[in-house]
């Protein structure tokens, strides 16, 4: 089969970007989407032209490196799959395919289709952990955990940190990403001592990074390659609210982590939305 691609090309954050059209004449339906781009890039490099920069690594849907908005959908047409797991058999001969980067203020563009997602790392650095040092931990079986609790925590922990939730959200909100970690740890007994503090610190950092608020579009859930449920957002909101009421107001955004490229936005109902440019 043959497809026509319209790919976002941009030399770096300072230059202008534009959609460039490429023909890929010989596509095997069993190829993955990224293999199709590899074939195109091979051709470009062979001609001495710069290949299209895009992110990938494990190519089995677990590292969270690959991105791409394909025909307006983060990770493309298949539900529950990362871009590297999308196969050309989902497209048709003669299709026009638009490929764009994740677009969000908190994810500045580096080149072509590659964006900087370090804002996610800083949210984790602010509180996405259980504060235990190495050594001195009790035997693993001294802490029985109900199978259902563990399964639910695992559902949330399955997040691969790809950022599709942000790319899909009209507000560029990171609520699903943050909620997944707040819930994973907050559901488990190990996460209880820091539960309130964690929710507050992670939310504060999320706001500081310039992610928008949630207004229940639920586009994040639809785009999530791991099909993480928006229920966790409700879970986090309850935790956050409880924390605001019960914990002293000592949390400041950042707390040692570097603040991202965007100005601070408040996390409350009156906060300004961050529509995608």
């Amino acid at each position: 089969m043959r497809v026509t691609l319209h790919v976002w090309r941009q030399k770096n954050a300072r230059s202008e970007g534009k959609l460039v059209t490429y023909q890929v004449p010989q596509v095997d339906p069993d190829m993955s989407f990224l293999e199709m781009l590899d074939v195109l890039n091979e051709e470009l490099v062979g001609k001495g032209e710069e290949p299209i920069a895009f992110d990938y690594d494990c190519r089995e849907g677990i590292c969270g490196t690959c991105s791409l908005v394909i025909n307006g959908r983060p990770h493309g047409p298949e539900g529950g799959a990362a871009t590297c797991q999308v196969y050309m058999r989902n497209f048709h001969d003669g299709d026009e395919i638009y490929i764009e980067p994740w677009r969000a203020r908190a994810f500045p563009l580096i080149k072509d289709l590659v964006v900087d997602r370090s804002a996610f790392d800083r949210v984790i650095q602010a509180g996405g952990f259980v504060s235990v040092n190495t050594g001195g931990t009790p035997d693993g079986n001294t802490l029985p955990i109900a199978k259902t609790t563990q399964e639910k925590a695992m559902d949330a922990a399955a997040c691969i940190g790809c950022g599709a939730c942000v790319a899909a959200c009209p507000n560029a909100s990171a609520m699903l990403f943050v909620a997944a970690k707040v819930s994973h740890l907050g559901l488990l007994p190990q996460g209880q001592p820091e539960r309130a503090r964690r929710a507050r610190k992670m939310v504060a950092q999320m706001d500081a990074e310039g992610f928008g608020n949630c207004s229940n579009y639920f586009e994040c859930e639809a785009a999530c390659p791991k099909e993480i449920s928006v229920e966790f957002i409700a879970w986090m909101n309850r935790d956050y609210l409880k924390a605001r009421l019960t914990e002293p107001d000592t949390v400041t955004p950042g707390m040692g982590a570097k603040v991202g490229p965007s100005p601070v936005a408040g996390h409350d109902a009156t906060a300004k939305k961050h529509p995608v440019a």
């Binding site: 035997d139 693993g140 029985p144 199978k147 563990q150 488990l188 190990q190």
Partner: peptide
Amino acid sequence: NIIDQCVAQGVPFAREYGGL
């Protein structure tokens, strides 16, 4: 020690119905 360490960090290892 590794298993104990990871459990303490909140790694959601598979459990039996009894919680172990």
